[in-house]
Amino acid sequence: MILDTATAVAWIRRAYELVRADEARLTRLDTAIGDGDHGANLTRGLAAAEIALDEKQPDSAGQALITAGRSLISKTGGASGPLYGNGFRQAGKELREEGDVAAVADALEAMLRGIEELGGALHGDKTMVDALAPAVAAFQTSASATLDLHAAGQAAVAAAEAGLAATVPMQARKGRASYLGERSIGHEDPGAASTVLILRALAEVTAP
């Protein structure tokens, strides 16, 4: 199994489906500590990404992710747009034509770096990084051990879910939730929740 153009496009489409299906939950999480627009924003951004992929017909997996990233940056409207958008663009630049499990591990690492550099969030700040960073590490470990894209994707999802759960007792240090101080404790971070969905989409479309 490799991440080729069709699989990369399928990843974005599946991410759109999963986020749209969970839009209400993401919005509920974001209403608790954020400005309540994460579900709607990310759904809009991924919808725009799907349209752009239809129009552009990318000829490589990297180009597909870069195209999706550009749409997320343009059309999302909230902080998740530039963050995920930049992440997908960095992943696309790293991946280029297509990639095996090792190349996808590098692409996910580039995604994480892009998000960290733009947003400046550290581990424990109660952001998407708290789901993505352990997920990328788990993907890399599984990639080396199994050489299997789907297995590595599943390992990443499990680690992201654990990372999401770990955001509950954290006090937010980024974004609107940080203004709440200690009151941000006790809730899942919506960005970490959407990261789980995006990684689940990858695991699903790489199933044999």
Binding site: I73, G77, G78, A79, G81, P82, L83, G85, N86, L118, G119, G175, R176
Partner: peptide, 13 residues
């Protein structure tokens, strides 16, 4: 704040 800063930084890049 927030996405305003991230959007401006992205444009600059």
């Amino acid at each position: 704040m927030g996405s305003s800063v991230l959007t401006a930084k992205t444009l600059l890049a």
